[in-house]
Amino acid sequence: MGVLTLLLPTALFTTVGTASANSTTDSIREIVLMISHGSAVILLVVYAYSRVFLYNPPGDGNAFRPLPDAPTAFLEEERALLNEEPEVNQWVCIVFLLATIAIMAPTAEWLVDGVEIVRSSSEIQEEWFGLILLPLSSFAADAILALGYFIRTTVQYILGWKRPPTRVAKARSIDVAIQFNLFWLPFIILLGWWSNRPMTLLFDTFEVSILIGACFLVNFVTADAKTNWAEGATMVSFYVMIALTAWFYTGDERITAILSSGQCSE
């Protein structure tokens, strides 16, 4: 739903830009702004009822009962969560989370200040830097954490210290992406509207195309609730193809003009 919402402003922008010779940058920008504001409100409504349905589906007791055709590993893990004590106290988790946020806030600020220095001192295009390098560095910590968890659980299993790792794919990154697309993105759009710093949901055709392609591949891989190393290698290969293609991507000058005009009007 979130990805298809990003497709609509791009499709309309392409149609308006080619069909009307009298359309100006300001008029197109106003249209895109109205579409973005309306879509943001709708996305927040979708996020709200999707959370209600997820945690309280129709039927008595369905909120705590997994589907009967769910994978066996998923059913076993659900039983363990209901019957076993958690490995870490919740208050320890809360304190640790607050301490982590306190460390990450100045670190992120320092990284943001250093981004422009790195980009200006290299021959990397701004589009490739924003599409590939910056997100890759942002999620490097998650990748290292997942790799470390895999190594730890595997070693513990080999030494007989712990039961084998679960075979259920958590899809945590997908959950985070859904939350960002359905909640944080429209929230930021509406926040910019309220603070008179207008932002839009307009992306160019190349950006939306690779996003739809990535979502199609991820949906195909996770449709059976099981994954393997070949499917993971396929997704990594497609990411490398995106990075290779994006190296020659220079952006859409018309969209850049619309964004620039919005900054100037502020």
Rank of each mutant, 00 (worst) to 15 (best):
I35E: 02
E109G: 11
S237P: 00
P186Y: 07
S195M: 11
A146H: 08
D26N: 11
L98R: 04
P66S: 05
T15H: 09
F96Q: 07
D113H: 13
T72K: 08
F64C: 04
D69G: 01
F139V: 06
C264T: 13
K170F: 10
S260R: 11
V45H: 05
F183Q: 03
L75A: 03
Y239Q: 07
E78S: 05
L182H: 06
V41I: 15
A141T: 06
I101L: 15
S39V: 05
P68Y: 08
V118A: 13
T200H: 03
G59W: 14
H37N: 05
P58S: 02
S39L: 13
S120Q: 10
F96R: 09
F13I: 07
T15G: 05
S261L: 09
E253M: 01
M1W: 12
Q179V: 06
Q263V: 12
A214N: 04
L202A: 15
M235L: 15
H37A: 05
D252R: 04
V236S: 04
V208L: 03
L75G: 00
E109D: 07
E84T: 04
N228Y: 15
I255F: 04
V115N: 04
A143W: 05
G251Q: 00
I242G: 03
S27P: 01
A225E: 13
I258M: 14
L43P: 01
G262T: 13
E123V: 10
Y249A: 00
A143R: 00
V46L: 13
I151M: 00
M34W: 12
I35T: 06
S39I: 07
G160M: 03
I242N: 03
I35W: 02
I188L: 14
T100H: 12
L211T: 10
V236K: 00
N83E: 13
A230N: 12
I188C: 07
L12Q: 08
V176A: 14
W91F: 15
I189R: 02
A11F: 14
N181G: 03
V236Y: 09
V221G: 03
E116Q: 12
G59M: 10
A108P: 03
